[in-house]
Design a binder for these strands. Structure first.
Length: 580
RNA sequence: GACCCCAUAGCUCAGCUGGAUAGAGCGUCGGCCUCCGGAGCCGAAGGUCGCAGGUUCGAAUCCUGCUGGGGUCGCCA
């Protein structure tokens, strides 16, 4: 059950019965437990409208609310707050229901959508680096959250497998490698590309050769195409390794090359819609001119003088063209009603432009740019190697795993065989990296600091894995089946039990809100609060040594905590571990 | 030049469609291992929410201006 929704509905009904009007209840969790569990703030807004005394209205609403069995108390406070205290027996009954629910009390959405999530998007012939970290982690988490709440989700890796870099790559391969990519790995490819790109700057005839190679490839030359395919295969092998390490998967790999055949259609479409005109030889869309046709461009685009170019003066297409084709495909072929682009926030303007064009072309779907900030080092500058190069994702993951292993060997709380230790260290290291990324508001830049990351304290991935492992430990010790644990009702006595129970009840709302608003940090916040409340409970309330309904109730709280922690971690793309 | 984003405790960050005394982690200081995992728990100190106005019963949150920082903007993605 979505608890906030439930009480919001309840409060609205109370307002309607008490005052005979439909009005927003404005239900919020209280900030301080002495004000109860939730507060209804609607009375104050309503009093203003009706020019009545807010406390009087609040009193009538409270009198109505208190009749409900879920409500233990409803009191008027301050200028017109209605403070609600939940009934512990009601909470206990709800928790017992969740314990018996394979979805841990999280309902499915009423209306399932088809949603494309576009994330990761690495380039061919380049190693993945920190710039791909957030898109990959965030995107994968969003896919699993949206899928869990009931949407039909298509995770799509929109790889950069087409475009000017291939001219350079082929020309470079011919010049430096005799034209044979055999034996090259991803780093080798990248080296060829860098060498070629440098040569092209210094030597115009080489640059011409590269352009000629690109033209050959794009005109469908069989030999060029075969080389291209080898580049793709070499890169794909490397990408598969990285994604396997990260536990990241996709449903589709529809890269830029996939849309190439559709690009002439894009030009036809924008031309037919009178959106584009030639300027300085390029085919351009000018948003500031839309007003003349009576439909001004949305937001800041209305004043945007710089064009959205869909065809260069040399006739070549750009990513804008491809992106329009991508919207077409997602709408017409994938039948998606929503697409989410998990891409660096610096591309915000591009997406505003793209979405405006898509709307004008009549694609009735919800398009969202889920942006994120830059990964910075400890000093607040974009994270790079000492030489100023991008840090490869592979080396970053290596270090995370190595550091996790080191900590685990030093701390050594439980005895694990060496191979198991290494396996768990991987899950902990990768989990730490993912959690650190997801716990932060995605729009702000974030500081990546291995020292903090692997410290394993506080609001961190390892702490959450640790908390979950501790829960499992109780059941192992007591030789009780955790997965199959059921109880008819949960009795709440100790304050720590009551606090934990209230946090547990919030899970469904948190998961839905985090998924719908694409904000995984809401889920990490909940998991952290849960882990803390559990620790408090764990310190104050002996479980195995207690008896009767106290024992079964406490075991139920443990089981629910364990499930939420593990479920939450899985939704974030982090692997729970049994022991660490 | 235009536009966008950001500014909250020493540091890193939360703060939901405006709600009560602005929260957490790390760090600092002080407690807690006869007890189910101490990677833990409890407590304390620490903030003119960048500045100045405005709207409101009520503003970190909304509006305007200013300062400081970051970013983006015709043929890369």
């Amino acid at each position: 059950m979505r608890i906030e929704r439930y009480f919001d509905d309840l409060a609205q009904q109370a307002i309607e019965s008490a005052l005979g009007v439909k009005a927003p209840a404005i239900l919020k969790p209280t900030q301080d437990a002495k004000h109860g569990d939730y507060q209804v703030n609607g009375a104050m807004a309503l009093a203003k409208q009706r020019k009545e005394n807010p406390r009087d209205l609040a009193g009538k609403i409270a009198a109505e609310l208190v009749k409900h069995p879920a409500v233990a108390g409803a009191e008027v406070a301050g200028p017109g707050f209605v403070n609600l205290r939940l009934n512990d027996a009601w909470i206990g009954a709800e928790l017992a229901k969740n314990l018996d629910d394979p979805r841990d009390g999280v309902p499915s959405v009423e209306k399932a959508e088809r949603i494309v999530v576009d994330y990761s998007s690495p380039n061919i012939a380049k190693q993945m680096h920190v710039g791909h970290l957030r898109s990959t982690i965030l995107g994968h988490a969003l896919v699993s959250m949206l899928r869990f709440v009931g949407h039909h989700v298509i995770g799509d890796n929109h790889i950069g497998d087409w475009g000017t870099q291939f001219g350079l790559l082929i020309a470079g391969l011919r010049t430096f490698r005799g034209g044979d990519p055999a034996g090259l790995d991803i780093a080798g490819l990248e080296a060829v590309y860098k060498q070629a790109s440098k040569r092209a700057e210094e030597d115009p005839s080489f640059a011409d050769a590269a352009r000629a190679e690109l033209a050959k490839l794009q005109s469908g030359d069989a030999e060029s195409r075969a080389l291209w395919q080898q580049f793709v295969d070499i890169t794909r092998a490397e990408l598969d390794k990285i994604y396997a390490r990260m536990g990241v998967t996709f449903d589709e790999w529809l890269g830029e090359s996939f849309y190439d055949p559709m690009l002439p259609r894009v030009i036809e479409a924008v031309t037919a819609a009178n959106l584009a005109r030639e300027d300085q030889g390029a085919l351009c869309i000018f948003f500031h001119e839309w007003a003349e046709s009576g439909a001004p461009a949305p937001g800041r685009l209305a004043k945007q003088k710089e064009p959205f170019i869909v065809r260069k003066k040399d006739g070549a297409f750009l990513y804008s063209t491809t992106d329009i084709a991508t919207v077409m495909h997602r709408h017409e072929v994938l039948h998606a009603s929503r697409a989410i682009y998990v891409v660096d926030v610096r591309q915000a303007l591009h997406f505003e432009q793209l979405f405006a064009v898509a709307a004008r072309l009549g694609f009735a779907m919800r398009l969202e740019h889920v942006g994120f900030g830059t990964v910075l080092d400890e000093s607040g500058k974009p994270l790079k190697t000492r030489e100023g190069k991008a840090i490869t994702l592979a080396s970053l993951l290596d270090e995370a795993e190595a550091r996790a292993l080191e900590v685990m060997k030093n701390e050594k709380v439980v005895d694990l065989p060496e191979d198991e230790l290494v396996r768990v260290a991987r899950a902990v290291g990768i989990g730490a990296v993912k959690y650190a990324d997801l716990r932060q508001n995605r729009l702000s830049d974030y500081q990546f600091d291995f020292a903090k990351l692997i410290e394993f304290r506080g609001n961190s991935g390892p702490y959450m894995q640790y908390a979950a492992a501790r829960v499992g430990s109780i059941f192992r010790k007591g030789e009780i089946d955790e997965a199959g644990f059921r109880v008819p009702e949960v009795h709440l006595e100790a304050p720590e039990e009551k606090a934990l129970a209230r946090t547990l009840l919030k899970f469904a709302d948190v998961v839905h809100t985090a998924a719908e608003t694409c904000q995984p940090h809401l889920l990490t916040d909940h998991l952290f609060a849960l882990a803390r409340d559990y620790s408090g409970f764990f310190e104050a309330c002996p479980v195995l040594k207690s008896e009767g309904t106290t024992r079964t109730s406490r075991l139920a709280l443990c089981a629910l905590t364990g499930r939420q922690l593990r479920r939450g971690l899985v939704l974030l793309g982090i692997e729970p571990v049994e022991r660490m």
